[in-house]
């Protein structure tokens, strides 16, 4: 096994992990504040991918503008979903919210099929993004580096917002104790909305990256990566943003290594491997690596 192959795998793991991390952050933020597993979160990735495609193809906008627009589209979608589906159910049992999010997800996927048809579309990136970049003898492309760099940038930006700003403080306070946060004068509805908007914006950008990396998108594309990002969030401890980031990279890396290092007969089992890990972690390490919650899960 050459060093180049190993570097390939590492870069592949980092790229995949970057996308998982960005999506997992949203899962964790939303769960952290209202204890909702938002199943529809993965479909924001799909929406982000299609918005990017539309803007690049139809309007030929410059990439930084497209990235901003994807952020905005994801965030806007999160806002609408929260207002329309989840706010009316606040206070209901957790499972109710989960079923509702499943319904939202099915609705978004099928709306996608209805409007865009289930046919996969080619996702064209500007040439310079797909140009090869030589690095330690590995076969990587500029887009891989761009994905990792922007994911790390966005994730640290978000951590900074959570750690340093007034809104971030309000989010942490709300996540810890919703009623007491209200007694401090925090408008929790706005805080929850902010968590949805920020988390969904990152998921939207992840859609951009997904399209750029794999070159094809379809309306059901958010389902599996969404679920896997949830697994990443569970690995890190749902509710913890740094945990979600780490979980994303851990999962991306181990998935790529699972496929790359084991004999090829095992490769088709990668999804089984991921969800087996999920069940195992839920059973033996219910708070994940970073979760601190003492809430009963098992």
């Amino acid at each position: 096994m050459s060093g180049g192959y190993l570097t390939d795998l590492l870069v592949g793991g980092l790229t995949l992990g970057s996308m998982y991390a960005l999506v997992a952050i949203g899962f964790s933020m939303i769960y952290g504040i209202i204890r909702l597993i938002n199943f529809a979160h993965g479909d924001i990735v799909m929406i982000g991918a299609f918005v990017t495609l539309g803007l690049v193809q139809a309007l030929d906008l410059p990439l930084p503008l497209v990235a901003l627009a994807t952020l905005a589209a994801g965030g806007g979608m999160g806002l609408i979903i929260e207002r329309a589906a989840f706010r009316p159910m606040r206070g209901a049992p957790q499972v109710t919210g989960f079923i509702a999010s499943l319904a939202v997800s099915i609705m978004l996927q099928n709306l996608g099929v209805l409007i865009l048809t289930a046919q996969p579309r080619n996702f064209v990136c500007p040439d310079w993004l797909s140009a090869p970049a030589r690095l330690l003898g590995a076969n990587i492309r500029v887009i891989d580096l761009a994905i990792v760099a922007s994911a790390l940038g966005l994730a640290s930006g978000l951590m900074l917002v959570i750690k340093k700003t007034r809104l971030g403080m309000a989010m942490r306070a709300t996540a810890e104790n919703l009623d007491t946060a209200r007694l401090m004068g925090i408008d929790v509805n706005r805080t929850i909305m902010a968590a949805f908007v920020m988390g969904s914006a990152l998921a939207g950008v992840a859609g951009f990256m997904w399209g750029g990396k794999f070159g094809q998108i379809d309306p059901l594309l958010g389902y599996v990566p969404g679920l896997k990002s949830f697994v990443a969030a569970v690995i890190g401890g749902v509710g913890s943003v740094p945990g979600a980031i780490l979980g994303g990279y851990l999962l991306g890396m181990s998935e790529v290594l699972f496929v790359g290092l084991l004999p090829p007969v095992y490769a088709p089992y990668r999804d089984a491997f991921v969800f087996g890990t999920l069940i195992l972690i839920l059973l033996v390490l219910p708070n994940g690596l970073f979760g601190t919650s003492t809430e009963e899960r098992a």
Partner: peptide
């Protein structure tokens, strides 16, 4: 905002926030 502060039962400080941040949240 109308000038009523409620100090809840069991204190309910935000335990993951720093002491200073707790005070700042009080003046949110």
């Amino acid at each position: 905002a109308a000038g009523i502060s409620h100090c809840p039962e069991g204190r309910q400080v935000f335990s993951s926030l720093s002491v200073r941040e707790n005070l700042l949240v009080g003046g949110y």
